[in-house]
Design a protein around this nucleic acid. Sequence first.
DNA 1: GCATCTGGTCAACACCCGTTGACTTTCACC
DNA 2: GGTGAAAGTCAACGGGTGTTGACCAGATGC
Lengths: 191, 191
Amino acid sequence: MTKTRDSSAPASGRERILAAAVARFSRQSYDETGLREIAADAGVDVAYVHRAFGSKEQLFHEALKCAVQMDKIFDALGSDPARMLAAHLLAEDEPDATVRPMDILIRSLTSPKAAAVLRTAVMEEFVTPLGAHLDTNATQRAALAAALLMGVGILRDVLELPALSEGPGGTLERSVADTLAMVLGQAGPKI
Amino acid sequence: MTKTRDSSAPASGRERILAAAVARFSRQSYDETGLREIAADAGVDVAYVHRAFGSKEQLFHEALKCAVQMDKIFDALGSDPARMLAAHLLAEDEPDATVRPMDILIRSLTSPKAAAVLRTAVMEEFVTPLGAHLDTNATQRAALAAALLMGVGILRDVLELPALSEGPGGTLERSVADTLAMVLGQAGPKI
DNA sequence: GCATCTGGTCAACACCCGTTGACTTTCACC
DNA sequence: GGTGAAAGTCAACGGGTGTTGACCAGATGC
């Protein structure tokens, strides 16, 4: 075999680096994260990170493609997409085992080095696939939905604004879902 | 006179530094902005910036207090606050003479060094004063409004998402206003 | 006229970063 | 079994950062 990806393999160095990058970039910003940390997590020398991915920016790009796969979520939305999206955004925080797909997006939104990569990623992996499910003014509605979701995500998870942190049974999720429903064009109950 | 602030004075070094900091931090992120740039803009040596403000973080704090004065805006809201807030958020971009109060907030939202300062600023200068004008669930509604406004601001001005950039006569402003009206608890027209 | 405090400068330190070139090890292939 | 490419390491470079201590000029107070 030349290089067929075996999912049960003991994880090659390159794969370990990518996994470590996804984990780091999901919890720290692009600027905050050093290649040396990622290399240490993967048990690899810094030079090899650069050798395997070309540059920090390209590694971030790979990590982004690997971690953000919103289209799957959008395609699986049922009869009440707004509520499902809100529930997915406000998923449980404690288990650091899983990485939420939007984390890596919102952590580095204001890092200029990552801006170019993020712009295309937000557009191609969020706005466009979501807009495909909408009717009138699709891309603008989808972009507005992205703005709402990311705004809540940033203020809640990055800035850790106490006013937005609450248990899963609270009223925040309902409010976000109702607002989202309005943005997406469905008739939603009054907030 | 010991130190009375004369508004027509030729601007002392400290004031020039503060003005330069506000201008820089409104267009670049905290990490992106170097003290040497600010010093050069103010026509002053780097060392004096540090001497006059103590640290970069404290300078950012001062700039934030100086540039973000949302309560004035909130107090001046008329009968249709949502529409006025949206109009204010989507203010003209070209004239770089004036600095919009939210710019300095959204540019550095994901810079960890600035996170602590930003958290209290967003809370004290945005959520709390806006919540004072609301009824039920005031702080959560206000925080949600902040999330929406900042989300749009970041995606539009920082990431420069083409789907959100449009002239002043477009439909984006109406959509944001209507969504905001729902979040703030007013009965708004369907989007 | 001396001391003093403020406003301001100059050069440098210590650190961290992404990146690179030279080197070694491993391993499949003929 | 030799060979050549891939996987991986080591040390270092070059540049940028916030920060600091020593120094200087000028106005002020006694």
